[in-house]
Simulated scan of single mutants.
Amino acid sequence: MEKGPHYAKGREIRRQLLGERTVERMAQTVYDDPMMNKFGDYASEAVFGMLWGRPGLDLKTRALICVVSDTATHAWPELKIHLRMARNMGWTEEELSEALLHMGGYVGLPSVREGLLVARELFREMREEGEGAAP
């Protein structure tokens, strides 16, 4: 796939959101074959370059929107990724937990429970990696 005008910007935004270590780990485990590599290139161009790179909202706010969306749609693997992005953008574990709890009245407790379990696992992983000390 030919790289478009938003590709480089998207790659940079993705690295900013996820962190260098996570981007490299995903390159070796998720995007390590031609099919997924094409997907990664597309996501860099269209999602990170064009969508995340739009003016009007900061990356911190966009990350929280993704956490809410993932929880509401039961996108648990994506929630783990977006929670990492949200932590890297400055949301605390407490703030993200509270955002998830707040959703209980709107998307239901089963979704919130699962979201909190995903968050607990991710926060533990990030602390072990030294990438997000608990407040």
Rank of each mutant, 00 (worst) to 15 (best):
L83A: 07
G130S: 05
E24W: 11
I81F: 01
G10M: 03
T22V: 15
R62L: 10
E78L: 10
L109H: 02
W76G: 01
A43M: 14
V67T: 05
V68H: 01
A134Y: 00
R120Y: 00
G108P: 03
A43D: 08
K38Y: 03
E125C: 04
M103Q: 14
M50K: 12
K60Y: 02
G53P: 02
M36N: 14
L17E: 03
E128F: 06
L18I: 10
V107L: 07
E98W: 01
N88F: 00
Y31A: 11
E24P: 06
Y106W: 04
E98D: 10
Y7G: 14
K3A: 15
T71D: 03
R113G: 13
L116P: 03
H74S: 15
T61D: 11
A72W: 00
P55V: 12
L79W: 00
E129H: 05
R124I: 15
V68E: 05
K9P: 08
L79E: 02
L79T: 04
A8Q: 06
H6W: 04
D41M: 10
R124P: 04
L116N: 06
Y42W: 12
C66T: 10
P55I: 08
K3L: 15
A27N: 11
T22W: 01
E128G: 04
V23F: 02
M36G: 09
W52E: 07
L17V: 08
S44F: 00
G104C: 12
A75H: 13
D33H: 14
M85L: 12
S97V: 04
L59H: 04
W52D: 06
E20N: 08
G104Q: 07
G49Q: 05
G53Y: 03
P77D: 04
K80H: 02
G4W: 00
A63P: 03
V30N: 05
D41S: 12
S111A: 14
R25Q: 14
D70A: 12
D32R: 04
N88P: 05
V30L: 09
G104W: 01
K3H: 08
G19P: 06
A119R: 03
A134H: 03
D58N: 09
G4E: 03
H6E: 13
E78M: 10
D32S: 09
W91D: 07
G108Q: 02
R11Q: 15
E12V: 12
C66M: 14
E131N: 05
R124C: 13
T22C: 10
R87I: 14
G115M: 07
K60D: 05
K9N: 12
L64R: 02
E12R: 10
V118W: 00
Y106S: 13
V112A: 06
I81D: 05
E12F: 00
E125Y: 01
R15S: 13
A63V: 04
A46N: 14
R11I: 14
S44G: 12
I65S: 06
V118L: 07
G104A: 14
E20D: 12
T22S: 12
R14Y: 01
Q16K: 11
